[in-house]
């Protein structure tokens, strides 16, 4: 068979139409997607304000690492790290992570101190949709630092049925 074989082309066209239907039918099951309870950018802002209060939120010092393209939103690897000497006088006290479009904006809030040696942690999180993730770090001097990333979530093809 060659690439330009007419019969094959027809078969391919039919295959496309059918599989488009399959993808359409299949692309529905997202475990966190319950519309009315989704966090909005506003509720994320509120959750951040809850931590930060009236203090200014500075860009920098903290770095959020998430793969740019996510294979499955059920377990997205995430690492947050901060530039800090982690000494008694100058260390990271807490790191919080938030999302924009999950049902609830809070993801994790970690408390650490000079004994950590390195201001960094990793976990795996759920992302219901393509969205923004924000990390906020609180330093021992009371300042807050932030980083944010935009992530794209793709969908699984073979799904759970009956």
């Amino acid at each position: 068979m060659t690439r330009d074989d007419g019969k094959l082309q027809r078969t391919r066209r039919r295959f496309l139409a059918e599989t488009a239907a399959l993808a359409g039918a299949a692309g529905i099951a997202l475990p966190l997607a319950v519309e009315q309870t989704s966090a909005t950018p506003e509720s994320m802002r509120a959750a951040i304000k809850n931590i930060v209060g009236e203090a200014p939120l500075n860009k920098g010092k903290v770095k959020l690492d998430v793969p740019a393209l996510i294979e499955n939103g059920n377990a997205v690897p995430l690492t947050v790290s901060c530039e800090s000497p982690m000494t008694q006088d100058d260390h990271v006290k807490a790191i919080h992570v938030f999302t924009e479009k999950n049902p609830q904006p809070n993801v994790i809030g970690a408390r650490l101190g000079p004994r950590a040696g390195r201001a960094s942690f990793s976990t795996r999180i759920r992302l219901a949709d393509t969205q923004k993730i924000v990390a906020v770090a609180q330093m021992s001097d009371g300042s807050f630092w932030t980083d944010e990333v935009e992530v794209v979530v793709t969908l699984a093809a073979c799904l759970e049925g009956s």
Binding site: V107, I108, A110, R111, G113, A116, F121, R126
Partner: peptide, 11 residues
């Protein structure tokens, strides 16, 4: 040395 509060978005 380390503590974390987890929410439903943890896998």
């Amino acid at each position: 040395i380390f503590r974390a509060e987890l929410f439903p978005a943890i896998a």
